[in-house]
Simulated scan of single mutants.
Amino acid sequence: MRDSPHPGSTTSVSSMALIWHPPAGLLDGMGGQPLPPGVATAMAAAAAQGWADPRRLHHAGRQAGALLDAARSSIANSLSLAAGMTINSEEIYFTYGVAAAQAFALDGYPGALALSSVETTALLDLGEVRPATQIVGVDAYGRIDTEAFHRAAASAAIGALQVANTEVGTCQPIDLVAAANPELPILMDASQAIGRIPLPQGWSMLTAGARDWAGPAGVAILVVRREVRWLPPINADRGWLGGFPDIAGAVGAATALEALMNEQGTLAQRAHADIELLRAGIVSGLTDVEVLGDPAWRLPHILNFSVLYASGEALVTELDKRGFAVASGSACVADHARPSHVLAAMGAYTGGNIRISLPLGCATETVESFLKVLPSAVAAVRADI
């Protein structure tokens, strides 16, 4: 973070070793990637200085509180760049996970929820327990119809939409939904989007996890715009919701996001080119394969494809033997026995599915090497059927 509450408590992003070095063969960035060295250093310094309860009035407590305040300010500055609008530190809340952030957000809005059928399972589960919730279907790309969402929103207290689907990468028309429903508060899931693409306008609340930008696990943010009529459902001292504040985690999340925002344009362009390379190579190198999601209006670093006559889990294992880490199944369901609700909602084949999410710092050489071994891996799996 650039603004340090105490001399030596944090290190300037520009002076840190913040080059991303994902492990060789990692093509599952959504599954996590190592912390950049500069982020780890900032977290260690914060842990050494921010160990006290930030609510305490003594020196150690004030020091911890100042670190947490600085982290909120840094996140606000970074999100202002990402969203193209001014976001204040008082609008930033930290918590321990995206699902928790979404639950806290919705607690302030009893009543019906309108959401798409490709939201996370956690959000869909939250919708199930609310009366008169309406789930809006999607097209073959995984995108909602704005008119259908408008009809569903007419009787809803709040709407919920992803910036983009983290399984197939397709972006949602949040700007259009907000314009058509100006009185409807929108809870926007910005997972995998911050620092990757410009954020849409018109949202009321935003959630995201720090792991999305190579920050620490166990830290998420909830952003609530000032004009939104929302009160924290629990005590939110210094902007932390639920449990004891993780000062080091908040500092790590802020430091990692600032680093990404400094390089976002270059990284997004490189990722977009690498995904285009993958898309072309997969189609030309395999038979009986379907690449899913919108080829144009999408996240720059995510690609999903389905291989006929092959098991997704078997493909993951076979590719792992060849030194490549990929994912299969729903992006938000760990139990691989459950088919992807996203692909099912799109009407796509749910078997033989592979999801690639490029980690920050992924080299083009990794993508090229993957394309060389993919045909033999698919052939080996198909041979075992």
Rank of each mutant, 00 (worst) to 15 (best):
L277A: 08
R322I: 05
D3E: 12
A148P: 04
V177W: 05
D294W: 00
Q63N: 09
T146A: 15
Q269C: 15
A363P: 03
A164W: 05
V177T: 06
D139V: 00
A60P: 00
F324G: 08
A271L: 03
K372V: 14
I186M: 12
L113D: 02
S311K: 09
A64W: 01
H341R: 04
S357P: 02
G323W: 05
L222D: 02
A296C: 10
P22R: 04
I194V: 10
T95H: 04
Q49R: 14
Y109Q: 04
A83L: 02
A210S: 09
M346L: 03
L343E: 00
V251G: 09
G352K: 07
H59L: 09
L18W: 06
A140M: 08
P7K: 09
S116H: 11
A254M: 11
P173G: 08
K372I: 15
V316H: 13
R238G: 10
S155K: 14
F244L: 14
L299A: 04
L343S: 00
G243P: 01
V342F: 08
A253P: 01
P359H: 01
T266Q: 14
R225A: 01
A66G: 11
A327D: 04
A178Y: 06
A132W: 12
G61I: 00
V289T: 06
A344R: 10
I385P: 03
A64S: 12
V136H: 09
A253S: 05
